[in-house]
Design a binder for these strands. Structure first.
Lengths: 236, 236
DNA sequence: GTCTATAGCCTGATAGAC
DNA sequence: GTCTATCAGGCTATAGAC
């Protein structure tokens, strides 16, 4: 693939969207050992892909992290690409199942507070998942183009519609619902994706429960107030 | 390097901090051609490193993007690592020179508005620079550990101190200055780092001036209001 | 299911002509 | 300074014994 010099066009990174039902190869029977191995491999792969990138992640290093011989990875997954896509599938699955709904009948402050806190919680409990998603998107999302243009876009559209209905019901002042969703996403995910930077600046070696609570409280208060809503922590 | 299975410890990615004065090899004389080539190489490298990761970025692809033969890259840079670190140096240099100061005498709303708008502007004009920094941090910042623990931490500490002084002067309500800086960083950089996602959801193929202005206005208004300040756009 | 051995490819880096 | 040719190393993936 050739590029003209110094252009600022996004490099199309060989878009290869995958079947989200990607499954490992080998015998399709269930089995405690099999399931256990698959879980270990997926966790290890997520960690190594984040730390080293797709190309930089060798099958050997993933096998080491999973505590299995290298050849066993190839027993479960045809090649590195299918393994990577399985990790992405797991990621999308987490995303799709974790989030509570927001509805037109809800109280905006309560609903947004719940959304923000859930996102913060996932950032602190599944930082690698958030990081892998971020790396994929930063690189041009070669494996998630279709997902983003279909499911994810619809997800945002539906939530934006609910927020818009709150505005029309005079439950909250006018604002741009899509930008508000971006603000909540970015500010909450920051604690996962930029964990290294946050810890360096706070001069800590790891997150603790207090840091998570402070982040959730700060973001909920600040964003709710930013939308013209009364923060839940405000005294009546 | 061995890891125990399923741990959630950050993988130490061979921390190799570099001399920020990293310079290309070859003749040290100035020269129009030389400077031109160096600029082309650095721009191309930034783009390819973002799209493919460090390992995935082949010297050949960087050479193609720069419009130069592969061997010429090796003429200017001893190896891929020094090239990568030169790109990071350029990034830190941009960061260090671009930002205006905030001072205890300033009006908080005006100062924060200026800070937010400058960050938004850089996100839209230098998306690759922001993306590369993000990828480096997500991967554990193997090349920026020292920078983050020294210069960057001091930068944050100084700004936090100014914000704290505003609070003590009753120019603004109490809030956590460091978390506020994280909020501004994350929400503004989101438009660069997650460009692919934002465009997919907005169903656009590229950013335009209007999108940038809407983002800057939204973030300035929402964050200022979130801090208990009157947004600059509010009518007197 | 597990593991060893190896084929085959790609890429970083160098040597040396021009 | 530029460019061609090439080598050495590391990696994925497969074949096949157990």
């Amino acid at each position: 693939m050739k590029s003209s010099p110094n252009n600022h066009i996004l490099i199309p990174p060989e878009p290869v969207d995958f079947d989200p039902t990607t499954t490992p190869t080998g015998t399709y029977k269930a089995g405690k050992k099999r399931d256990d191995n698959l879980a270990r491999i997926l966790d290890a792969a997520e960690e190594i892909f984040v730390a080293r990138g797709f190309k930089g992640a060798s099958i050997q290093s993933i096998a080491d992290a999973a505590g299995l011989p290298k050849a066993n990875i190839h027993y479960y997954y045809k090649n590195k690409t299918t393994l990577y896509q399985s990790v992405l599938s797991k990621l999308i699955n987490l995303w799709n199942t974790q989030f509570n709904e927001i509805k037109a009948e809800d109280d905006p402050a309560t609903a947004l507070d719940g959304f923000i806190r859930e996102k913060v919680r996932i950032s602190f409990t599944h930082p690698n998942t958030s990081k892998l998603f971020a790396m994929e998107v930063i690189s041009g999302a070669p494996n998630l183009q279709v997902y983003m243009r279909t499911d994810l876009r619809r997800w945002v559209k539906d939530r934006a519609h609910v927020i818009q209905s709150w505005i029309e019901q005079d439950k909250m002042p006018a604002t741009d619902p899509v930008q508000l969703i971006f603000l909540i996403w970015s500010s909450t995910q920051h604690y996962a994706d930029f964990e290294t930077q946050v810890l360096s600046i706070m001069n800590k070696s790891r997150y603790d429960a207090r840091t998570q609570k402070k982040a959730a409280d700060f973001l909920s208060d600040t964003i709710l107030r930013g939308c013209g809503l009364r923060p839940l922590s405000a005294k009546t």
